[in-house]
């Protein structure tokens, strides 16, 4: 399995990358870690006449933090997040999620920005960044703009970005220190893409609860009814569980497709297990 021939260029900085992308007819594809792109090229699921490698662009490798947010350059790797080589905004959630993406050999090269830009509906970051309320800083021929997570992921492999734009960094708001989270992923084999993903973040100090169901539909589903039922809940009770089951059903009804009965059970279980984890129920 070898890719079709293509041209390769290594961008030295963001303007260099944008210049390569400027010609809409050229069919140029951006490569960060290449951990999804190269398999697709090898399998000839995708062919591109030209690949622009952004993995060495210093600006895209930067990371930083302010009092209320963490900023991650698009080419920060999953492995760096796993190892704590990037600031953690959410009480360990991002480190946990990073450590469960594929395998270490893939995490060492795969990047958070590449994952967000590819927008595979089953990818961990797509779900997690929506739950965290992240913002995506995108640069293109008309300058820089910021897109909020709910407006970023429009359909499988389809984001708010045009082919002439580049994701440069991701801004993740910090939770309060005593926020808790749950993250439950169903896979048939460790390291695979999730069949379903439940992400729950509870931040009582900010009166905020966030619940996202990932991988089960065309885009991650913000479970607002479930989040409302969890907001302020001090602990797991039978009454809470009953209320959550009703709320989950309400959220699923707003999904972009009906769930088969067995899927509905798997999805409900995924969300409830993430919720119990966030509430500290073992």
């Amino acid at each position: 399995m070898k890719p079709m021939p293509f041209d390769y260029a290594r961008a030295t900085d963001v303007p260099d990358a944008l210049a390569a992308l400027a010609d809409a007819e050229a069919g140029v594809r951006v490569m960060a870690g290449g951990q999804s792109l190269v398999p697709m090229l090898n399998l000839r699921l995708a062919t591109f006449p030209r690949v622009v490698d952004i993995s060495k662009v210093a600006e895209l490798r930067e990371r930083g933090e302010t009092a209320d947010a963490v900023t991650l350059g698009a080419c920060v790797t999953h492995g760096e997040i796993e190892d704590g080589e990037a600031p953690e905004p959410a009480a360990g959630l991002m480190r946990h999620v990073a450590s469960g993406i594929a395998y270490r050999a893939v995490r060492n090269r795969g990047t958070i920005g590449g994952s967000a830009s590819l927008a595979d509906a089953s990818a961990d970051w797509v779900t997690t960044l929506l739950a965290l309320g992240a913002r995506f800083v995108i640069r293109g021929p008309d300058g820089e703009r910021e897109v909020a997570a709910p407006d970023m992921f429009l359909a499988p492999y389809f984001t708010a970005m045009t082919d002439q734009e580049l994701l440069v960094r991701i801004v993740v708001p910090k939770t309060s220190r005593d926020a808790t989270w749950g993250y439950y992923k169903v896979t048939r084999r460790s390291g695979e893409y999730g069949l379903t993903i439940g992400a729950v973040i509870l931040d009582p100090a900010r009166d905020r609860a966030s619940v996202v169901l990932g991988a089960a539909s065309r885009t991650p589903l913000a479970c607002t009814a479930t989040a409302a039922a969890l907001r302020g809940a001090p602990r797991w009770t039978d009454a809470l569980e009953a209320a959550l089951r009703v709320a989950v059903a309400e959220d699923l009804a707003r999904g972009d497709r009906p769930f088969e009965p067995h899927e509905a059970i798997m999805v409900e279980t995924t969300i409830l297990r993430a919720a119990t984890q966030a509430l500290g129920v073992s």
Partner: peptide
């Protein structure tokens, strides 16, 4: 995983890493 190597001391899959990179 059969093609695993080290790149700058970190394990990587050499089958999905372009030599030119």
């Amino acid at each position: 995983g059969a093609c695993t190597v080290l790149i700058d001391g970190k394990i990587a899959r050499s089958c999905i890493t372009l030599a030119v990179a």
